[in-house]
């Protein structure tokens, strides 16, 4: 596996910020936030055309976090990318604070307030359609979870995007195999997801969701694609990535860290960064 040291260090830093935000507060959604760190790192530090100094630039690339419950991950990424002061992260999930658990447009860089699943892709298609009609270069990235695919609105959107050849859309599925109350495979299996999406007229790629090179390659390929198909990247991820005792665990969706583990975790991350 090729390692890009600079990007790797950024991903580590984002993880540390997430743990600093969530662990002391015993907030939920730790696993979901940690699992998408590399995806956000690749997008915000490598792939997307964005400028923190000009966040409303008409030609910018858009990112929508459809799985809004991983808001902490997006906030940490935006702060490190310079969209706002890192100090603001201390206002996460606090009384009278600014940053709610679910991604909110209150801060610079968050394009859409989310929290209910199945909203991001349709809104993203509207942004993409607008760009197409106006002949603007924007790409629209939408990050969804595999559990989120239960929502019918996504399937309406899959149909619409290919009908209208919205090849400026790049959806990413955070495929961690877990959802709110069970394993995706056991609750409502989406497999064979690649074949399903291909049959809906999308150009599908698969990537290792924790390998920055693999993600960059898939994203760049989607960006430069000459096909008129909308793009989707199925990124295989591990929920809770970065906390060994949490990795791949359904419980990491909620808070379940003992007091001893809490202190150990914070200090071990501190040492590494």
């Amino acid at each position: 596996m090729a390692i890009d040291n600079k990007l790797d260090a950024i991903a580590h830093q984002i993880r540390y910020e997430i743990i600093k935000m969530l662990v002391p507060l015993e907030s939920h959604h730790i696993g979901c936030s940690l699992g998408i760190v590399e995806i956000l790192t690749a997008l915000y530090f490598e792939v997307m055309n964005i400028d923190p100094k000009n966040p409303e630039d008409i030609n910018r690339d858009y990112f929508i976090l459809s799985k809004g419950h991983a808001g902490a991950s997006l906030y940490a990424t935006l702060a490190l990318r310079g969209f706002f002061d890192k100090k603001l992260l201390s206002q996460y999930d606090t009384n009278g604070g600014l940053l709610p658990e679910h991604a909110s447009r209150v801060v610079s860089g968050v394009e859409l307030s989310t929290g209910s699943l199945g909203h991001g892709l349709p809104v993203g298609l509207g942004l993409a359609l607008s760009a197409k009609r106006d002949k603007r270069p924007n790409k629209v990235f939408v990050l969804m979870s595999d559990g989120e695919l239960d929502e019918g609105s996504n399937w309406e959107a899959f149909l619409f995007a290919s009908q209208h050849k919205l090849n400026n859309v790049i959806a990413i599925i955070d495929k961690n195999g877990l959802q709110g109350f069970g394993k995706t495979e056991e609750v409502i299996s989406v497999e064979p997801i690649k074949e399903k999406l291909e049959s809906f007229g999308w150009a599908v790629q698969e990537a290792d969701g924790h390998d920055l090179q693999s993600l960059k390659k898939a994203m760049t390929e989607a960006q430069n694609s000459q096909s008129d198909k909308p793009n989707i990247i199925i990124a295989k991820t591990i929920k809770g990535r970065g906390i060994p005792f949490f990795e791949g665990k359904f419980e990491s969706h909620y808070y379940s860290i003992s007091e001893e583990k809490k202190a150990e975790l914070l200090s071990s991350f501190n040492k590494k960064s």
């Binding site: 859409l112 909203h119 349709p122 509207g126 942004l127 359609l129 619409f160």
Partner: peptide, 25 residues
């Protein structure tokens, strides 16, 4: 190009409308 039959899919229709409006339409 500006009148679009969204099909029988109202959730997507409102989402797409919102995306268009977010971009200033």
């Amino acid at each position: 190009t500006r009148v679009i039959n969204m099909g029988v899919a109202e959730q997507n229709m409102i989402g797409v409308a919102s995306g268009l409006a977010l971009s200033g339409k």
